[in-house]
Write a protein that binds this DNA or RNA. Sequence first.
DNA 1: ATCATTGCAAAAGATTTGCAAGGTC
DNA 2: GACCTTGCAAATCTTTTGCAATGAT
Lengths: 167, 167
Amino acid sequence: MASNFSLESVQVSLTPQERFEEYLQSRSKRCTGPRRILVDHIFSNHEHFDAETLIAQLPGKNDKGYVSRATVFRTLNELVEAGLLSKLDLASRTVFEHDYGYPQHDHLHCTKCDQLIEFQSEELKRLREQVAQQHKFRVTGHRLIISGICEKCARANRRQRRPVDMI
Amino acid sequence: MASNFSLESVQVSLTPQERFEEYLQSRSKRCTGPRRILVDHIFSNHEHFDAETLIAQLPGKNDKGYVSRATVFRTLNELVEAGLLSKLDLASRTVFEHDYGYPQHDHLHCTKCDQLIEFQSEELKRLREQVAQQHKFRVTGHRLIISGICEKCARANRRQRRPVDMI
DNA sequence: ATCATTGCAAAAGATTTGCAAGGTC
DNA sequence: GACCTTGCAAATCTTTTGCAATGAT
């Protein structure tokens, strides 16, 4: 019993897989092998990913469990519709991230190494409401991406640049 | 003299055209006809626009002042580099907007009519710095897009939906 | 004259779609 | 069996690029 505690106390009662099935049924769509494979894989870790990366990680064309590129894109879109994933349109590619059972957050984007760092801010929520009210706007969501250089890249840069000055 | 006051008190002393020429010279790039045509057109109003829309507004393939699609894209990129324009990557297309002599701001994006409403927030600037500091991040910029339904669309929606209830 | 820029057409990258075959309810 | 989904290939859409001709300095 005690060992179940942490699981039972989780706010989200359905697994992504279950949640997706629910969504599929509600629209009389079907729960198929490829869809299961994708949801399984996608929710096995919490990293941000793009379609290309995901495809590269999945079984290849001649292996078992192969899912075609078209189906990957189709399913990714369904997962966004279902509210399990959300899309970030960065300057270059489109990145996906988990959006179910995962707290609302925003991102710092390092333009050097393309890393995304998540953060949360209560203040931002307030700000959002305040601005919306001023413009009589009905908010459904928001996206804040702060771009710049992460600590690691900043340091790497310094290491490369300073020696010249130090001679 | 008094009539010049408002012009002289403007913070930006160069026109976009001049500013672009400065940029071009600094990189030993050339000030050409097509580039002038584009800057002229782009800075003749302050609307948000995408490449397709811009191209549609420019002289057609057989008219004088025609600029090829490739050159439009090339110049748009140069204008962004030069700091005259900035890019917004919306869910669908990429939208450009003036970024020179125009105050920093963010956007409300109506997902119904695709309208972009600008707003400014001092609070957001503070928030940005605060978050960056926490993550030892060197900020170069940010992008906040709050999405939802604008007042007009919300009303239009109500008009279409309520009558049924009212019968 | 030198070197950048243009237009064109082809290429590229990312995502979507038509369709026949196969899977799910 | 009805109907949704898949894989494939072709199609789209948007943006980029190679190259020979043209233009700017």
